[in-house]
Design a protein around this nucleic acid. Structure first.
Lengths: 368, 368
DNA sequence: TGCGCTTGCTGAACCGGATAAGTATCGTGA
DNA sequence: TCACGATACTTATCCGGTTCAGCAAGCGCA
């Protein structure tokens, strides 16, 4: 029941190991008739080259490594990761490359994983995601000499190959759209401030609003709960925003619910924009205006560049398409202040209410 | 700049390759002092064992394979997969096992992938998910002799090791709860009918309802859109259900929106239960009553059993905890028919309306 | 003192392929 | 008819570990 080796094939065919190797790899050195015979026997025996034996001769491992540094629950809730992985995978599979995955707790562990994989010859390259400001992984991978693509902005990718999309442009487009609708107080519920793309969005958001609208940015950990909390705080402030831009879709949905709890109508009293479109944005009411991009394609680009790097090419930095604003029902011109104004009591607190049970009555006025 | 090999360490230490191998693997055959010296030198040179060379000597590949057979978008939207993978990963990482992932289009491709991985010695075992009725992968993996754990019911897992949870029991608990609340017409929006767990839930649902409540099951492809469509159809039927159980959370959220579009109040006019809890269920209004389970732990159990299998043990089938009903705001006793009844016109069609814009006016009555 | 046993190490074979170097066979042109 | 070169292989070596047989030194014991 042992797996057949090249020697088994050679014995069956009555030739030497070397001849079999030539035949199976399509190299010159055997006649066409012998080659056909060897191929047939290999097929019949169900022979497969041992990846270990191949790798031992300096060949590539034909594997790419990806370490993810986020807790299980967050990962699960972010369609981004699965779509990205799926896109990476599609490209790798087409070239018979495998993807090896590991979920780690922090950057220290992540570096240790890459060090081990590379040291053991398990991977030919790596993909770095969630780039931080001053990310320790960058100099580490540089010194290891491990071919790597960074999904993140070139300003922080060092000598590693960056693949990124223009978050600043997408922010500007969004802000301009909201301002054109008439919004003059815009808030942003952002993700982790240490992530490079958060910082870039922060800056672009401030610049785009400057002079045209009041603006404020609140940072969170990307969870729905944090998004809801930030939303409640924003909406209960004296100068509450008429539009909020969220850094992911789960927070946008949570924000939508929080606003509706406060008896605000979306989009009449509050416009909402989500970053990274997903089926979720289409499924809630109203469906969310969102910044969409083709995430699997994004991953595919990264994978393709990494394979080029591994092959010895020197592909240049790659800027993918920026996210495009997909208009849906959650954005509209702001209503003049009137019946839609929340009752301060409901907005600012008192004892925590049970889920989805605002006090009866109230001044909420007609809802559409 | 070449990676140091065992020979480099041996030369530095002034001993033979064999001695180094004994020292580094903690086997007897070298004195403690020599061992310490060799270890120090290996550490200093940054030596790592080549996984290829190890594997060549019949050692394990220290890798587990997982092929996912779903389109990118669906995968992204299902927190289940990422949480499962994360749980599997956690267990594997603790034993220094790697997880190799591939996204495939169909079972044929999936089988080919396992065949290749196993033939090439890339993996020591596999995890099968999304078990189908009469799944072709089961006999295939059996004949390959590849150690495998099936995440799915023992009735269809052949001689492969099953890890499952009692979906039937969870369905019964849910139905009993709904009946106790007073529901007498219960619908279920189910997933793909060819999946084993769908079939089991179907049967358990029918049995639990039988005699106590009218029941109907509609099958979908798990997407939010299909969930919304099924919900609209159910709610516009003459004998509309007062409670709907959904097979995943994205469909439940979509169903919630669809019901609200029809001017139904959840939970007054319709109770909703989601399968597989996720942050999403907590974030919408009202928050959804859901069947929760610890999915990372589920994956962890599967991984642990697979490692035992690989190690040569014969662990028995493992039944994980059944999902538990987590009560939230989306379930309540059904209201007697009254103001909440949908206007047939809005329910049954006419031209498709824009997103979230039901016609103004109407008989919808007061909303909370 | 001599025997056998343990300890601590060396040398070599081996895993399954890739590949460089060597060799036998054949056809061809001078 | 012989030299030459191409063709079609074989042989041997290598990759980086593991492992087994062998061996010398040291020790206890009769």
């Amino acid at each position: 029941m042992r797996r057949p080796t090249i020697s088994d094939v050679a014995r069956q065919a009555g030739v030497s190991k070397g001849a079999v190797s030539y035949a199976l790899n399509g190299r010159p050195g055997v006649s066409e008739s012998t080659r056909a015979r060897i191929l047939a026997i290999a097929e019949e025996l169900g022979w497969r080259p041992s990846s270990a034996a191949r790798a031992l001769n300096g060949a590539r491992a034909h594997t790419v490594g990806l370490a993810l540094c986020r807790p299980a629950r967050t990962l699960g809730m972010e369609p981004f990761f699965m779509e990205l992985i799926s896109g990476i995978e599609g490209e790798l599979a087409a070239r018979s490359y495998a993807l090896t995955l590991q979920v780690v707790a922090d950057h220290g562990q992540e570096i240790a994983v890459y060090r081990r994989w590379w040291g053991e010859g398990r991977i030919d390259g790596a993909i770095l995601i969630d780039l931080h400001v001053g990310d320790p992984r960058v100099p580490e991978l540089e010194s290891l000499g491990l071919p790597a693509v960074v999904i993140g902005h070139p300003s922080e990718s060092g000598t590693l190959l960056p693949v990124w999309s223009d978050d600043g442009g997408a922010v500007r487009e969004t802000v301009e759209y909201l301002i054109a609708l008439g919004h003059r107080r815009i808030a942003r519920v952002a993700g982790l401030p240490r992530l490079v793309h958060t910082a870039l969005r922060d800056r672009a958001f401030a610049e785009a609003c400057d002079g045209a609208a009041e603006h404020v940015t609140v940072h969170t950990d990307y969870t729905g709960e944090a998004g809801a909390r930030a939303t409640r705080r924003l909406l209960s402030s004296p100068a509450r925003p008429t539009a909020i831009v969220y850094d992911n879709d789960i927070m946008a949905v949570a924000g939508l619910s929080a606003a509706q709890d406060l008896r605000l109508d979306v989009p009449r009293d509050l416009s909402i924009v989500a970053w990274d479109d997903s089926p979720l944005s289409r499924v809630v009411r109203p469906p969310l205006t969102a910044l969409s991009r083709d995430i699997p394609a994004y991953g595919g680009h990264a994978a393709r560049r990494l394979l080029a790097l591994i092959a010895g090419d020197s592909p240049g930095p790659f800027e993918d398409e920026a996210a495009r604003l997909t208009l849906r029902g959650s954005t509209a011109p702001p209503a003049r202040r009137g019946p839609g104004t929340p009752r301060p009591a409901a907005a600012t607190g008192g004892p925590r209410r049970g889920p989805g049970k605002p006090p009866p009555g109230g001044t909420g006025g007609s809802r559409r």
